[in-house]
Amino acid sequence: MTSRLSLALLEINNLAPSFMVADQCSKTADVRILGIESADGQGQCIKLVGNVAAVTAAAERGVELARRMGSFGLYSIMAAPLEVTLQLADPKPVISPLLGSSDNRKPRENAMAMTNALGLLETQGLVAALHATDDMLKASNVTLAGKEKIGAAYVTIMIRGDVAAVQTAIEVGKQTVERLGGKLILADVIARPHADLASLLP
């Protein structure tokens, strides 16, 4: 990495909202997602690199979206950070044996572009998440893309399919979580995920 790059750090509560924000940031300006790092709980740090104007525009738009979704969001811009700071912001992922997931979601090289819509359902509590997943897969022609845990009982379920099918499934999942009395964090659809976001997904 070169010191001419600027670094934007966005702190967003929960994983599903951070995926939505990262997608929006990538679509707003010419930035590259360095990764999304978990603080072993709600807080997720989205790291963007690009020129200072681009990362600022992307970060502002991302935090605005987070707040519209009812999530916490803040950002900081480092213009031309030191190389040691960039290395600190881009650590190797560590797998949590407790959660069975990585603390730092980094773009995979040669990741295939995602042509399907992405549905995100995040709950606090595993019972509602698993029951909702079963109902979503039965209700619509979608496939399970992954399950991620970030600690504090937060679970994010990801599904893929065409836009209408994913929208139907996510609505069913949302209704299931509410019927079971689970805590719904986010239930939303990204119709056309940006390639940078797709490279972070399972």
Rank of each mutant, 00 (worst) to 15 (best):
M1K: 11
S3M: 11
S3C: 06
S3F: 08
R4E: 10
L5Q: 11
S6T: 12
L9F: 08
L10W: 01
N13Q: 15
N14A: 13
L15T: 08
L15C: 08
A16R: 01
D23M: 02
C25D: 01
S26Q: 03
S26W: 00
S26D: 04
K27P: 01
A29Q: 06
D30E: 12
R32N: 13
R32Y: 10
I36D: 07
I36V: 13
I36R: 08
E37Y: 11
S38E: 02
S38H: 06
A39Y: 02
D40W: 08
D40S: 12
D40P: 02
G41F: 10
Q42W: 02
Q44A: 00
C45I: 14
C45W: 10
K47V: 05
K47F: 07
L48Y: 07
V49P: 01
G50E: 01
N51K: 11
V52L: 03
V52N: 05
A54F: 06
V55K: 00
A58R: 06
A58F: 10
A59S: 15
A59D: 08
E60V: 11
R61Q: 05
R61A: 09
G62T: 07
V63W: 09
E64T: 14
E64D: 13
A66F: 05
A66D: 05
A66N: 09
R67H: 12
R67F: 09
R68S: 15
M69C: 11
G70R: 08
G70N: 07
S71P: 07
S71C: 15
S71V: 09
F72E: 10
G73A: 07
L74T: 14
S76H: 11
S76K: 10
S76C: 11
A79H: 06
A80I: 04
L82M: 12
V84Q: 15
A89V: 12
P91Y: 08
K92E: 13
I95L: 13
S96Y: 10
P97S: 11
L99V: 04
S101W: 09
S102I: 07
S102T: 11
S102W: 04
N104L: 09
R105G: 00
R105N: 03
R105W: 13
P107Q: 08
E109I: 11
M112L: 15
M112Q: 13
L118V: 05
L118P: 03
L121S: 02
L121Y: 03
E122Y: 05
T123Q: 02
Q124D: 01
Q124V: 13
L126E: 13
V127M: 06
L130F: 04
H131L: 12
D134H: 10
S140K: 06
S140V: 11
N141G: 11
V142H: 02
L144A: 07
A145M: 10
G146N: 07
G146I: 12
K147Y: 08
E148N: 12
E148G: 02
G151A: 07
A152C: 11
Y154W: 14
T156M: 00
M158V: 09
M158A: 14
V163N: 15
V163H: 15
A165C: 02
Q167G: 15
Q167I: 09
T168C: 01
A169W: 00
I170V: 14
E171V: 12
V177W: 09
E178D: 06
L180R: 04
G182T: 00
L184I: 00
L184F: 04
L184M: 04
L186R: 06
A187W: 00
D188W: 03
V189R: 10
I190A: 04
I190R: 00
A191Q: 13
R192F: 09
P193I: 00
H194M: 03
L201E: 02
L201G: 08
P202G: 05
